[in-house]
Design a protein around this nucleic acid. Structure first.
Lengths: 345, 345
DNA sequence: TTTCTTTCCGTGTTCGATAACGAAACAAGT
DNA sequence: ACTTGTTTCGTTATCGAACACGGAAAGAAA
């Protein structure tokens, strides 16, 4: 049942374990005839290398470098998810080092990436938010042979060990469905953006695209969709929005980043929540509070713990267990409401 | 960084590894003074037992017995999820054996359980659908010291290593929310049951309870809720339902088991889908098709792969890594619509 | 003092894989 | 015959933990 060991192979083939080992590792210095004999016996006995013995001997310690931003709770959760997963594997020799970059500063990303590479880790987990720079880093990684996993958004043209993230466009499509549930001919929808803060974030564009695609697919009038800029001024709402509220016209709000709570709270203050459905992203604390208070209707979420697990697991599988990993791992589009909130983490 | 080893502890404490080992395993025969000294050094050096060495020496092979039904696609997915997870750990010596029982036959459950126990596995995964019988089995398992994980539904009074499943009542609560989304004063809702087939299934009752609780919590009239029995006759709809349809009255349908597709298809045939929202459970193939065709609006789901992983992982952690596992692991209440269907598995 | 228990602790082997090191056998060149 | 090189293979120590076994030391009983 369990598979033959090297020593048993050696006995059967009447050679020493050294010879068997040389054959199994293609280290040469073995006569062709005995090599064949050994391989045959190994195959017949269903030889599998004993991970425990191997790892013990090699005294493996796997250092993973994590290159992520950490400038809001969303990314903090991602970081924690990875740390969490890594700790699970700590007894198997896995450790992580975080290289946190500022996503509004290319130099920061580049320098952190190089720091990560110089620490010569066995694997890298990276969020390629700055596409062009990430691209050069990734080709670099390919050359020096460090496997890397991309999280959150993918990078066409690179061949990561795995990509783990959401289908952003589909998430926007889903958002449109939820906002328009029960409205056969579509409903007025306002997209709230923050182009300054999110200037480089391709993911948000994809989400918005998805929403628009839903309207198109259902033959809703494109005029139903408007985009407005979130005012930075504390508590103030976009002017266009106030026009609707002043006329008591119902309207739905789509906030493609994690800051739906800001809008929701402002609307609550002026008592206009009844007029709108609000959908946002990411189950951060402020959004959770708003869900609980009924100020936000839906949050689309991806479980950062699972994402972290998958990322670490992908590297673990590849590095320690030496097995294949699937290259595209799309995270579930979690729909979170007040009612399933408590089990969403 | 990596923890101290036994040998290093021995050197520091000026004793032999044997003594250190006796201390760490509480095997006695060590003077109190040296014991304290050793423990102090171990703690200071952050000693962690090397899983590789430990497992190598103990030459552990972990056989897990799985006691589940397999009479529909839902359970099939559960079985697959567990098999899948077990295969992940196969290189660590984990193997599984399935003991499939017929959930309408107590003797089948009992005999399979005994077969499982007689195979003397290191751990057991069980769905305690037949509560009373499962209870006696579990107390039995406690006595002979085989750790067990319960999936799907819990069993009060037993102390499983872990329970992994959904909060059924909360899922009904969530269902009510989704069905009534946009209806401020609540909406007519029909609960479709199949008391013959589901006679023993406590989970379904809890789901229905949850739905009713939502109506109560929102001060909706309890008269809005009705229960009907699903006609076994092919294609026929419950009479009460037809009354509503004949009058073109809108009504929502709550199907607490995995057979929402049956109802949905019958309603589609008579062309009355526009009159109702339909919510069901479990992402089995027929339900997936109905979601895709717009015949079902929502499916509440739990990821069977994740559930399988968690179950196997709980045993793995406890048996191999020797770490603690959390006793209640509630699965997420996944809301599945046509739009996030593709990433729900 | 001798003998016998306890109490305490060290030694040595084992698990399976890995790889450095060196031994044996043989051919070829001087 | 003697050196040198090449190919092929065996020996052995090592990783860290687990545990059986035996032995030393200290005290108790004779």
């Amino acid at each position: 049942m369990a598979g033959i060991t090297i020593k048993q192979i050696a006995e059967k083939a009447k050679v020493s374990v050294g010879t068997v080992d040389r054959v199994l590792h293609n280290r040469g210095e073995v006569a062709e005839a005995t090599k064949k004999r050994i391989l045959a016996i190994a195959a017949e006995g269903n030889y599998k290398t004993n991970v425990f013995a191997r790892s013990l001997k090699l005294n493996t310690s796997f250092k993973l470098a994590v290159i992520l931003p950490n400038d809001n709770e969303y990314w903090q959760m991602q970081n924690e998810g990875i740390l969490n997963a890594a700790e699970q594997y700590s007894s198997l020799g896995v450790s992580v080092e975080f290289f946190t970059f500022n996503r509004h500063d290319r130099n920061s990303f580049i320098s952190e990436s190089f720091k990560a590479m110089e620490s010569s880790p066995q694997g890298i987990i990276m969020a390629p938010l700055l596409h062009e720079d990430a691209l050069t880093i990734c080709t670099n990684l390919k050359e020096i042979g460090i496997p890397f996993v991309l999280v959150d958004s993918n990078l066409a043209g690179t061949k990561p060990l795995a990509f783990i993230g959401q289908d952003s466009q589909q998430s926007g499509f889903l958002a449109a469905k939820l906002l328009n549930f029960g409205h056969e001919n579509g409903h007025k929808c306002m997209i709230i953006r923050d182009t300054h803060f999110d200037s480089l974030n391709k993911t948000l564009d994809e989400r918005v695209d998805g929403l628009k695609k839903y309207y198109a697919a259902n033959k809703f009038s494109p005029d139903l969709i408007e985009e407005v800029e979130l005012k930075k001024t504390e508590g103030e709402l976009p002017a266009k929005l106030n026009v609707y509220f002043d006329n008591n016209e119902p309207i739905h709000l789509f906030v493609p980043n994690s800051r739906a709570h800001e809008i929701a709270k402002r609307i609550d203050i002026i008592g206009k929540k009844k007029l709108c459905r609000i959908l946002g992203y990411d189950l951060i604390k402020e959004n959770i509070d708003c869900l609980n208070d009924g100020l936000i209707d839906f949050i689309i979420h991806q479980n950062p713990k699972i994402q972290g697990s998958l990322a670490v697991e992908a590297l673990y599988k590849s590095l320690i267990l030496n097995t294949d990993v699937s290259q595209h791992q799309f995270m579930q589009l979690d729909i979170i409401t007040k009612e399933n909130l408590m089990y969403g983490l």
